[in-house]
Amino acid sequence: MAASGPVPALFPDVTMALLSFALRRLAVSLPSLLLILIGVFALLQLAPGDTVDALLAQMGGGDPVQIQQLRTFYGLDAPAAVQLGRYLWRLVQFDLGFSAIYGKPVAAVIAERLSVTLLLMVASLWFAAVGGVVLGIIAARKVHRWQDAVISTVGLLFYATPAFWLGLMGVVVFAIKLGWLPAGGFEEIGSGKTGLLRALDITHHLVLPTLTLGLIFLSIYLRIMRASMLEVSTLDFVRTARAKGVPDGAIVTRHILRNALLPLVTLVGLHAGTMLGGAVVVESVFTLPGLGRLAYESVIQRDLNTLLGIVFISAVLVIAVNFVVDLLYARLDPRIRVKGH
């Protein structure tokens, strides 16, 4: 009698498998990106007033001939579908259009602001992920004891705190009362610092914004990590490990931890957009010259070209984060590489 079937061949190269998996996921996100652009473009057609109106409001009015010329210049007299087509075509060429308000290409406006937001996001994400994982593990290991109670309570409190308020209260305590940290801004303007000194200065300025943006996510991650650890510890293979005589500590590090991380990794990807949204508020609280603040300003100033550019960049950013998250997930979980999800 034949023994149960042969062992299926492994992928010759795990890296290739990872990459092909992630690329497949990336391909799936392209329709979403297109949908977003079309949707947002259509949405903005409904907006009262266009770029020219906004420009005129800034200039204090103009005569009808001039207005018509401006509309033609910005291509606003064509039908919406044609405008959309033109816009997408320009996007393919990495041209985001021209911001009438700032008087320069949208790409340039965004480029100036992007690094601040990226820095803030990366810092907050690290803080939230590392802190959440560590605290979640501690809470799960000490479940139903005082350590767990303290961590879970603090987590719940931060989860319920509005970010802008947390930021303001941080300013009151650490900037105004204690004077330890600056109340806002990206760096000391006109200080002429360079190199390491400048990096330190920026770090100093970003401590409060990072904590403000990160703490909510930290509280979410710690709750998920705790629940996930507890869930995994009830699974059969953990019992198998016990039956092998593996000590408790090794059971956590070798068997529970990696399995428990999987739902968290998924969540980080899902939260990329939320975090970018949070940046709008946090940058506004701390007057940081980032993408979020730019989005806020373009809403106020009706700078629709810039707004559309921000939407595009944000979506690309979120897709990029998810790409990295997918790679990480596939690295952690051998099953996903084959299944392709």
Binding site: F237, A241, N259
Partner: peptide
Amino acid sequence: VRGARIGMIFQEPMTALNPLRTIGDQVGEV
């Protein structure tokens, strides 16, 4: 005692092994 003087096998072969570690790794763990 567990694993060394008493060994144990379980019902569910699908779930009794850690999905994220190789077979060799899990047998070798003993």
